[in-house]
């Protein structure tokens, strides 16, 4: 189908673009810089993609841990709607030194590092659904094991009734490695943030 009359063509005009474009670009840059300085907290809600988290040290207050089942998305091309047995760890306030998170995308890794230069990364309401969690020298205080998962009260979430639950007032783990199916963080500051697409994942276990 054609129209015989030339319709008037609209166009982007540079000067007019700049009226909103310049503040927009400046604001984007400011957000990036503020996040990289650890001044701005960002939220995360990642799921359905297996990813690893490595850290030199994780310390937190208000820990809860219980079992659960995650289902991968029915649209997931690799694993269509598969149930994964996971254990869910939720921490009210966490500080993570030298955080490195990697997601595999094809042959490359999307790698996010933060908190490696003095100031640790901090997260509130951190929840991870993992199937592997390793660490060197973990120390807990106020540890309660075997409490019904639905009655946990030291963190911000509870598990299904009638299942095993664990909770603690404080936790400190060194050389953490997690293989996660989901990660959620209510507010997270990421000082010395670096996002890169590389051929190799995080150094440490699991890679």
């Amino acid at each position: 189908m054609t129209e015989s009359v030339t319709p008037a063509k609209g166009r982007v005009r540079l000067r007019r673009w700049a009226v909103l474009g310049v503040p927009g670009v400046v604001a984007t840059a400011a957000l990036t810089v503020l996040t990289a300085q650890g001044a701005l907290a960002v939220s995360f809600n990642i799921s359905s993609m297996a990813h690893t988290i490595n850290a030199d040290k994780l310390s937190g207050t208000g820990l809860a841990q219980y079992g659960g089942r995650d289902r991968t998305s029915p649209n997931n091309p690799i694993e269509k709607g598969v149930y994964k047995n996971v254990f869910i760890t939720t921490i009210k306030d966490a500080e993570i030194t030298n955080l490195c998170q990697a997601v595999q995308i094809g042959a490359a890794y999307l790698k996010i590092t933060a908190g490696g230069k003095g100031t640790p990364a901090a997260a509130t309401n951190l929840a991870t659904d993992s199937d592997v969690l390793t660490g060197k020298s973990a120390s807990f205080s106020g540890l309660e094991m075997g409490r019904d998962a639905s009655e946990l009260n030291k963190s911000f979430s509870t598990g299904p009734a009638g299942t095993f639950g664990l909770q603690a007032d404080t936790i400190e783990v060194k050389n953490v490695y997690q293989h996660n199916w989901a990660t959620t963080a209510g507010a997270m500051t990421l000082p010395d943030l670096r996002i890169e697409l590389t051929r190799d994942g995080c150094p440490g276990e699991g890679n």
């Binding site: 993609m49 209510g186 507010a187």
Partner: peptide, 17 residues
Amino acid sequence: MMVQGSLEVALASGPRG
């Protein structure tokens, strides 16, 4: 990316979720 995340946990983590 968001709908693949857990809505339950997002709701638990407050209005920001």
